[in-house]
Nucleic acid binder design. Structure first.
Lengths: 347, 347
DNA sequence: CTTGGCACTCGACACGGGAGAGTGCCAGAA
DNA sequence: TTCTGGCACTCTCCCGTGTCGAGTGCCAAG
């Protein structure tokens, strides 16, 4: 029972600190919340919480501030994701429904997330490695260059240019046509890794003197097919970073740098691997402060979710902000947006 | 002759202020530069410069700081663009030559600019309105949706999805094939506005009951062909913003917000219209402080340049930073990068 | 037109003394 | 055992003061 009150105190500390962004002391705590005990008792509880490493005093005789561990406990056990109001849901739907394009969907989503949460929003494009090949096109670009275009079922389009030796116009045109149809026959409808494997044997079906060309095209496709670095992310709301506390010259610069390293963002937001059994596909992942691998993000938290149809995730999205953030509301927003985007990409 | 010295004083003030980021006074001025006159004389000159609105004292008896007008005069008449060293040129070439892709070129360019100048770098993708149509592709996406893909001679690829009523598989396939080849025959090799005009009469060549479909595809293409908002920009180096002076909570937030408004960036960096006669295509445009339209950018300067082959500009690039920036070096870097990117896109 | 000198004005900085907030601890009450 | 009120203590924050130094403006003389 003491235990229970102690946790209630922790919850109150987190809530108040998020509200005021100032260390919270025992007096104001008993004023704003009805614990039914006096400030002195709360002080004792706070001392215990500090021993357990859940809160921390910036200096003697200032209030207490939650530690990363404190936020973690709060998120895991002390808070419920705040359900969104009908109006909010409607607004999300209205805003996303106007999208004409995959690019447009992603763009709107990331802006929406940023303005809902007042944090930095990140959206990963549907991952290629979890997509199917819809179409492949080979287009000559000038005399000796080919553009290879790959269209995924998610609507993503990737292209790459390769330099090759083409023969005469006439013969080249025919050859390209044949390459295109063979590629399509072999790869269309298959998953990317699958398609990649199947294409290996393709050059054998061509005349020996054409094989170099075919190999070049396939090599080019292969790059697109499993190069992880082709994963793309977009972000919005970086301006929200400036609304943090006062000490952020040192805080904001490494964060902005980290945000430009898309590889870092992919680690944070990319949903690699299927949803583990038992964990629903739309589960939220929360990473708090130092739990984060990247050094520059030690004082930021990341809330991310996968999106996609059913348990088949195709990408990730989420927000990044100071550890001192309103977790229940932010988690609700991320979840709602991920849910809606999943629906949108369904058909 | 007095006139001449006064300008020399202004130049020295700008240089010192950029170096130290502190208001510069008459004493330190005569110490660091050999004017051949005393501090008192310089003071008189400074008083005149202040009357002319070229410099400004933050408060009584602090040093002087250049105004926007002062920077303007400095850029126009008092500085020469610092030529880049051979090593720097070589580094630029080495860094950009590895690009495999238009996306890659743009990505590398923007990062390069950011790291060369230590400012925020912006690169516009080659504009569609100044491009030629290289190829058009129509790909069915599921039962009732088509993806229309447009490839420009610059390597840009744009796609859009349109929902249509397709007939039976067999007939639809043939129809799409015909649409594709008619589109290509009409548009390939033409400029975007040109192509758009020519496509208008295309539906007439199809059987009446197919015209709706054809019109849908063309409408979709048209959107891509002259919707200005399809222009794309990318940026890098936002972390450099954090290295500004101390008062930037109020400074940095509106800038970050402006940077997310790609429309704003296009106005700043997009090179619309051909290079005016007499002004070479690679001319640098410099906008200083309040010369800027956008309110949030009142204390930032923009240095931009077009790029493209010869006098035919296809896009813009540049950097954005505090008005207190090293104009000669930054201008040199922007010019060199623009020059190199132009070469790279040449063939 | 230039120069040195002089008085004056401010901002930056260090010092010091409340005021206030908050803690820790302890002895007594429930 | 657990809670409570009280008290001493320790911080930070803030404000006023005084000093220092940089820099200016002006003036009379070269």
């Amino acid at each position: 029972m003491t235990d229970e009150r102690r946790l209630a105190v922790l919850r109150a500390i987190v809530q108040d600190y998020v509200r005021t962004s100032e260390p919270v002391g025992s007096r104001s705590l008993v004023e704003r919340h009805q614990f039914g005990v006096s400030a002195a008792t709360v002080r004792n509880d706070m001392a215990l919480l500090e021993e357990e490493g859940l809160i921390h005093a910036p200096h003697t005789s200032a209030g207490r501030v939650p530690t990363d561990a404190g936020y973690r406990l709060f998120v895991n056990r002390l808070s419920a994701i705040k359900p969104m109001s009908g109006a909010e849901r409607a607004a999300i739907a209205r805003f996303l429904d106007g999208a004409v394009d995959l690019d447009d969907v992603v763009d709107r989503t990331v802006r929406l997330l940023a303005s809902l949460t007042h944090q930095v929003a990140v959206v990963q494009y549907p991952s290629l490695s979890r997509s199917m090949v819809r179409h492949i096109e080979v287009v000559p670009m000038g005399a000796s260059r080919l553009m290879v275009i790959l269209i995924a079922n998610t609507g993503r389009v990737e292209q790459r240019v390769v330099t090759v030796g083409l023969g005469s116009d006439e013969a080249a045109h025919d050859l390209l046509g044949r390459i295109r149809s063979e590629l399509l026959a072999e790869a269309a409808g298959r998953s990317f890794p699958d398609a990649s494997a199947r294409l290996e044997s393709l050059p054998d079906r061509f005349a020996p003197h054409d094989r170099d060309l075919v190999r070049a095209v396939i090599g080019c496709l292969d790059e697109v097919l499993h190069e992880e670095c082709e994963e793309r992310v977009v972000l919005a709301g970086t301006g929200n970073l400036a609304r943090v506390g006062s000490d952020f010259p040192r805080t904001i610069a490494p964060v902005l740098e980290a945000l430009e390293e898309h590889v870092v963002l992919l680690k944070l937001f990319g949903q690699l691997g299927d949803a583990p059994a038992g964990r629903p596909a739309d589960a939220l992942a929360v990473t708090i402060g130092h739990e984060n691998q990247h050094a520059g993000l030690a004082s930021t938290s990341v809330i991310s979710s996968g999106y996609g149809s059913g348990s088949e995730l195709v990408g990730g999205l989420g927000v990044l902000g100071p550890t001192r953030m309103d977790y229940p509301s932010t988690m609700a927003a991320v979840r709602a947006v991920a849910h809606y985007v999943s629906q949108l990409l369904e058909p």
